Computed example of a mutant assay.
Amino acid sequence: MNQNAPQTKLQVSFVTISEENATQRIDNFLITHLKGVPKSMIYRILRKGEVRVNKKRVKPEYKLNTGDEIRIPPIRIAEKAAPEISSKLNKVAELETTIIYEDDVILAINKPSGIAVHGGSGLSFGVIEGLRALRPEAKFLELVHRIDRETSGILLIAKKRSALKSLHEQLRLKQMQKSYLALVKGNWPSECKVIQAPLLKNVLKSGERVVKVDKEGKPSETRFKVEERFNFATLIKASPVTGRTHQIRVHTQYANHPIAFDDRYGDSQFDALLMKTKLNRLFLHAAKVKFIHPKTMQEMQLVAPLDKILQACLTEIRNHKYQQIDF
């Protein structure tokens, strides 16, 4: 720790839990409430009994109830060394133009390819940090789910904890339906409608995540439907039933029909052919999502159009008869 870093001292504070935070674990509440405080320190003050709920010691897994009064002790922390993210930065400002739906409890964007959903791993900020910079008055903005940095399409953000809880429950119960469009190598067989192959995630020393089909992995299921056929490729709809890391990308590779321009699981010969279409990014797009609105309780469907690069790729393939390739 830098001993010369400027310090800020927080005073003893008392927080009364509203219905919005009820059923949340005390450790998760403190992590969100005490922004900038290391998790290790939060668990330390819980372990020492410095945090009290209704004047009693509690364990980290304690679930809050409406009306609970939390005593939070003084905590000395270093001032943030990183500058605040400016809402005037071009990439941050552009996020405003990607919003496809917003009300008082949820927000949805059509995330561009190349932008991570959150900062970390050398990235100063991601979608969620950018949206918080754009909406400094928003008390709560949290990711409902994640999509890969290279993948474009619908990303849901909750504006209230109650909405986040509702949508997470729908994900857990597999009630939320997500559909992706992907351009894959070769002629996808019509009879291949479901792939159930367990996925095992490995983290390399570099921090890179690589996933493979392995019997020791977690159960994973993706459903497929052919949307359009070309001489050397197929446009498919992929609907993940489970939500594993890189699931669609690995399942299509497992079927010997990898996705175009996938730098981890793809096929260089296939990608080279598609360079004629000016495609320069992973052809995987979260096109549609169905869920129950957390406030109205009505079924809702959101659709995100393909970006110009993906549209241009399909147009080029449709307008020109490329030579049949045997892979």
Rank of each mutant, 00 (worst) to 15 (best):
P74Y: 13
E61C: 07
V51R: 01
G49T: 04
T66I: 06
R52F: 04
V58D: 03
G67A: 06
P60W: 10
R47I: 04
R71Q: 15
R71C: 14
K63C: 14
E79D: 14
L64I: 05
P74T: 05
A78G: 10
G49L: 06
G67M: 14
R52E: 08
I75P: 04
E61I: 02
E61Q: 14
P60S: 13
E69W: 02
K63R: 15
K56N: 13
I72S: 09
R57W: 07
L46W: 06
I70H: 07
P74G: 11
E79M: 08
E69R: 11
R71Y: 08
E79Q: 13
P74V: 08
E50I: 03
E50R: 03
E79F: 03
P74C: 11
K56Y: 01
P60L: 10
V58S: 03
E69P: 05
I72P: 02
R71T: 15
N65M: 13
K55G: 05
G49C: 07
N54S: 12
K55E: 01
E50L: 12
N65T: 09
I77S: 09
A78W: 03
V58N: 04
V53C: 10
N65Y: 12
E69D: 11
E79T: 11
G67L: 13
R47K: 13
G67Q: 15
V58K: 09
G67F: 14
N54W: 13
G49S: 09
L46N: 06
P73E: 08
K56T: 09
E50Y: 05
V51D: 06
I77T: 10
L64R: 07
V51P: 05
V51K: 00
E61S: 11
P73T: 12
A78K: 13
V51Y: 00
I72Q: 08
R76E: 12
K48P: 01
R52P: 00
E50H: 06
I72T: 02
Y62N: 07
L64V: 06
K55M: 01
P74M: 07
I77F: 10
K59H: 12
I77Q: 13
L46I: 01
I77M: 15
I75C: 04
E79G: 09
V51H: 07
V51L: 01
I77C: 06
G67E: 15
R76I: 12
E79W: 05
R76A: 00
R57F: 07
I70C: 08
P74H: 05
R71A: 09
R76Y: 01
I77P: 00
P74F: 13
A78P: 01
T66R: 00
K63I: 03
P60F: 14
E50C: 01
Y62H: 13
G67N: 09
V51G: 08
R52Y: 07
R76G: 01
P73C: 14
K59W: 11
P73Q: 10
E69C: 15
N54H: 12
I70T: 08
I75Q: 02
L64N: 02
K56D: 05
G49E: 08
R71S: 14
N54K: 11
P74K: 09
D68N: 09
P60V: 07
